[in-house]
Design a protein around this nucleic acid. Sequence first.
DNA 1: CGCCCTTTTGAAGAAAATCAAGGGCAGTGG
DNA 2: CCACTGCCCTTGATTTTCTTCAAAAGGGCG
Lengths: 241, 241
Amino acid sequence: MPHASWITKLHNLVDLTVKGERAVRALNSSVSSITRHRDFISRLKAPDYFYVIVSGWAARYCIRSDGSRRITGFMLPGDFCGIHAVTHSAMDHAIVALTNCEVAAIPIAEIEALCSNVPEFALALWRAKLVDEAMLRQWLLSSSDALQATARMLCELSARAKAARLDVDGICALPITQEQLGDAVGITGVHTNRVLKILRTEELVDYAFGHLRVLRADKLSEIGQWNDRYLTPWSARTKIY
Amino acid sequence: MPHASWITKLHNLVDLTVKGERAVRALNSSVSSITRHRDFISRLKAPDYFYVIVSGWAARYCIRSDGSRRITGFMLPGDFCGIHAVTHSAMDHAIVALTNCEVAAIPIAEIEALCSNVPEFALALWRAKLVDEAMLRQWLLSSSDALQATARMLCELSARAKAARLDVDGICALPITQEQLGDAVGITGVHTNRVLKILRTEELVDYAFGHLRVLRADKLSEIGQWNDRYLTPWSARTKIY
DNA sequence: CGCCCTTTTGAAGAAAATCAAGGGCAGTGG
DNA sequence: CCACTGCCCTTGATTTTCTTCAAAAGGGCG
């Protein structure tokens, strides 16, 4: 069960041994296609499987009482979810396919066995969760300033797309609407549009529906008060920050 | 090494067996006193120990480039931290004592051994982390409305204090300033004050420095769009939401 | 072509930040 | 004992930011 992007992700997370990689590839899973806008993990119940995104983009989200939506995390190919299933916990949020997706569903028992037999896999799960959490903290951190929050979001998505090798010549797919981006940043779609206009006219990014190219990574990071440390906190850094 | 509040917390998280509880009590740890406003886990490096709050309040926080602070999580007696140490990861944030605290430092190796020998302890760590993450999502959800966010925060803190048995006759200690509360809610101290005034004049809470009593839990929950599901997602609920 | 979805822009209004100043209370020291 | 100081709470006035409401323009597709 290859799913190259997942293997890439795991290698980014830990030193996956040959034995470990073999065990991951040997997992039973069934891949299904999810159409755009459909939830594949719903709220209030424990998910039935552990899921890995094979292709497409998904998002964690909650609906407010006024009907508005807040996206609390993006999931790219190689990303996985379903820890709630492992801990027999009900979801406090749902996960929706933002684009048409292929997702691999893996039985919980297989994941549990893998955690016991391949220690670095358990470590990978922990690290991935710590990164998820760090991203949430970063989102909270910049949530008070729309320009900063948007710049930060573009930096983060661009970096994650690069890490997942989803970019080609510096251009990465960003198959989401401005409204969806706003739902994640915490601002309205209208305001997202205005903020993106600033970033474009300042020639910091080349953005249009479907793709993103960061033109001035230095400037964009500065505006977004962003750096990539929190995405791989386990890697030794020689740089002084 | 009792630390009753930690045992209580673990029992809230999982069905801790007698053997498991004995193993937890047998842990080696050294308790130290942290004076108010001092960091006991700093940013950019992996913590040296796994920590359990014995008494006092602590908080996870980040500093923005303009010098302002965002609190991204409160820690009450019984709460623990240090997963970054277990995964050999650098912290993306720091943890500060909001009041004078006693914290128990437990060597990482002891925690790792406990995870191997007491399966429900490992599960407890996972569940606690899922709750931390759910809290962050909730904070993000309500971050656009100060009244809602503040009401929600008071609901959450009150519920957590109750769960940790820190309340007496419905009054729980809340030993933090309005500015600290604002740092957590994501608004200025001045605005926090105005919002609290509303909640007080509406007679929803009895709040003053040091203590909180929720007078109208129903109303407060409604304003804060809050319910306690995300705090214990593993417990079967018969209620229909 | 016409429809739907998305983007874009304008104008008015609401929410929160900022700036500024005063007040209460506890601890400190003359 | 009382002035002084520091910290926190409180309130008012002004300004900035973002939302809301509204409308029009672009683009892909049956």
